[in-house]
């Protein structure tokens, strides 16, 4: 590279014919206009173009991030809604179970009470019946005794013996006991 430049410098005198780039008389002109151009480009870039593009890129990034965040939020909301739905469902199911249990307990209590009442009534009626039976039995015994006394009196009379009513009744009573 260095040899090329020295060689080129050697040819600088005849450069107009060979390489126009090495014509030193045009250098100030090129350098001046290059400086003007570079300053212009730098001003355009740093004042207008680059901040604008940077802002656009940042805004786009912001929009994308915002949209992603919104999507995440909506997703979260959907999950929450599903959870709430599930919770409501579970609550309703528990409530239903509770109502069922309660109702069952109520019915059981009513049933128990009714059974108890029925039992009591049955007991009362059977006691009454027993008493009635006992009465009937007592009256029957009385009747049997009377009949037996009468019968015995008649039998004794038939044998021609004048029987003492009292003795006969005592004998019958004695006999029935035995």
């Amino acid at each position: 590279m260095t040899t090329a430049t020295t060689e080129a410098a050697g040819h600088a005198a005849e450069s107009a014919a060979g390489m126009p780039q090495l014509d030193i008389s045009t250098f100030p002109n090129q350098i001046f206009w290059l400086a003007v151009t570079l300053v212009l480009i730098h001003l355009i870039l740093s004042r207008i173009a680059l901040p604008r593009i940077e802002a656009v890129l940042a805004e786009r990034q912001g929009t994308i991030t915002g949209d992603l965040a919104a999507a995440e939020e909506l997703k979260q909301k959907a999950v929450e809604a599903e959870e709430a739905y599930n919770k409501a469902l579970a609550d309703a199911r528990a409530e239903a179970n509770r109502i069922v249990a309660e109702t069952r307990a109520d019915i059981q209590a009513e049933l128990d009470e009714a059974i108890a009442r029925a039992d009591a009534e049955i007991a009362a009626r059977s006691a009454e019946s027993e008493r009635a039976i006992a009465e009937i039995r007592a009256s029957a015994q009385e009747a049997v005794k009377e009949v037996a006394v009468d019968t015995a009196k008649e039998i004794v009379a038939a044998f021609g013996v004048k029987a003492d009513a009292r003795a006969i009744a005592a004998a019958v009573t004695q006999r029935m006991k035995g």
Binding site: S25, T26, P28, N29, Q30, I31, F32, W33, L34, V36, T37, L40, I41, I44
Partner: peptide
């Protein structure tokens, strides 16, 4: 004519087009 430091040349033109 001669190219002074301020003379607009074809290089100047194409630098301008670049801008």
């Amino acid at each position: 004519g001669p190219i002074h430091w301020y003379t607009p040349t074809n290089a100047t033109l194409w630098m301008g087009i670049t801008v």
